[in-house]
Design a protein around this nucleic acid. Structure first.
Lengths: 201, 201
DNA sequence: CCCAGAGTCAACACAGTGTCGAAAAAAGTC
DNA sequence: GACTTTTTTCGACACTGTGTTGACTCTGGG
């Protein structure tokens, strides 16, 4: 019986493409996408400017590739675990938000670029979809807690409450990651979530 | 005594400059600054592309002029009235948020452009300053209510609470102005503010 | 009438993007 | 190893948009 077929390692091109993506992510941490030239990306990966177009149609197309690289992490780690029922609400919300903060630490630059109004529609749709899933999960959680009487009924509707809490979380994480300490960030967000959902007026 | 000096009406140049700013604000409502060409702006004001540079050094410089046009409204109407003590907290917060929503209706496009990471540093500083004032006013309000025992003491600290509530409000208004009705938007935001500040855990 | 400065614009230089086709490098086949 | 095929590279080009310059016109006051 012959030895198992030697798996073709990643070709030279695959490695160059990866190098481009890594260069891009590195540069995105220092300045917005619009200010990153193709030349700069290409030199970062050791190829000429026009070779860049062998790998990506444009800078925007590269952003999409960058997003899909990040997408797996994001969907499995954040979306699927978002508000998974745990012992008590406080812990559930706290760990979910903690997870979101960590995800931002790792991929914040890419997500920020995708949120930019100049980003291609696909990128913005990706972000909108992500947001939509988180809102839906939150809405469910609120509805469940209202059904059991643990949380007071609306108004405000579960949907608008969920929209704003998720929005607040995204906004706070992306704008105050540096200014406020991570612990204070998570604790304050958790407290607001808890009060907004469970406190009667 | 001589007749009062005839006030020089706005010169031709002043009118052209105004026309440029109006064209810019109109176009900003439909697409981001980066996608607006100088040519487009110039034609909108009835001058040639190169004449644009007689009025502004660059597209970014024009954004600053646009911002300062909006600044007066913004500072007097929102910053100065933000959380002015009224009958009860609910009303105070509600009317302040309503005011912010209205301001966004009128000048949202310009403010959105100024928030963009590609905007010139001055524009971003302007927004940061605006944000800082609102946070400071909110923080004061929270501290006052804590001092009288109307609101429970922290943690969370008044500062981080204020930061996140203001952030949530900005984010919600700018991202959900269309999707949620204005009334629901104001009511839900108000409810969250009230609970976050006054509810004990 | 003449002048000053306000306003205008065609023509230019330049930087960045994206395309093309020819050539070099790598991989596969006998 | 010589061959074909596919992958990868890049120089040269066309194009678009920006910002600058210098000469021109217009306007109003003395």
């Amino acid at each position: 019986m012959s030895a198992p077929v030697r798996r073709k390692g990643p070709s030279k091109g695959d490695r160059k493409q990866e190098a481009l993506l890594e260069t891009a992510e590195r540069l995105l941490a220092t300045k917005p996408l619009a200010e990153i030239g193709i030349e700069e990306l290409a030199r970062g990966a050791g190829i000429s400017r026009s070779s860049f177009y062998f790998y990506f149609e444009s800078r925007q197309a590269m952003l999409l590739a960058l997003l899909s690289r990040v997408s797996d992490d994001l969907v499995t780690q954040v979306v699927e675990c978002w508000l998974e029922p745990q012992s008590d609400m406080r812990t559930t919300v706290g760990t979910s938000i903690g997870l979101a903060v960590q995800m931002w630490d790792e991929h914040g630059a890419v997500l920020l670029a995708a949120q930019n109004p100049d980003a291609p529609p696909e990128a913005q749709e990706f972000m909108a979809d992500l947001n939509g899933r988180l809102v839906a999960a939150t809405e469910d959680m609120i509805d469940r807690n209202r059904a059991t009487g643990a949380a007071p009924a609306g108004p405000p509707s579960a949907h608008s409450l969920a929209t704003m809490l998720v929005g607040m979380t995204e906004h706070t994480i992306s704008h105050n990651a540096g200014a406020l300490g991570r612990a204070e960030l998570v604790d304050t967000l958790t407290a607001i979530w808890h009060r907004a959902i469970f406190a009667a007026d």
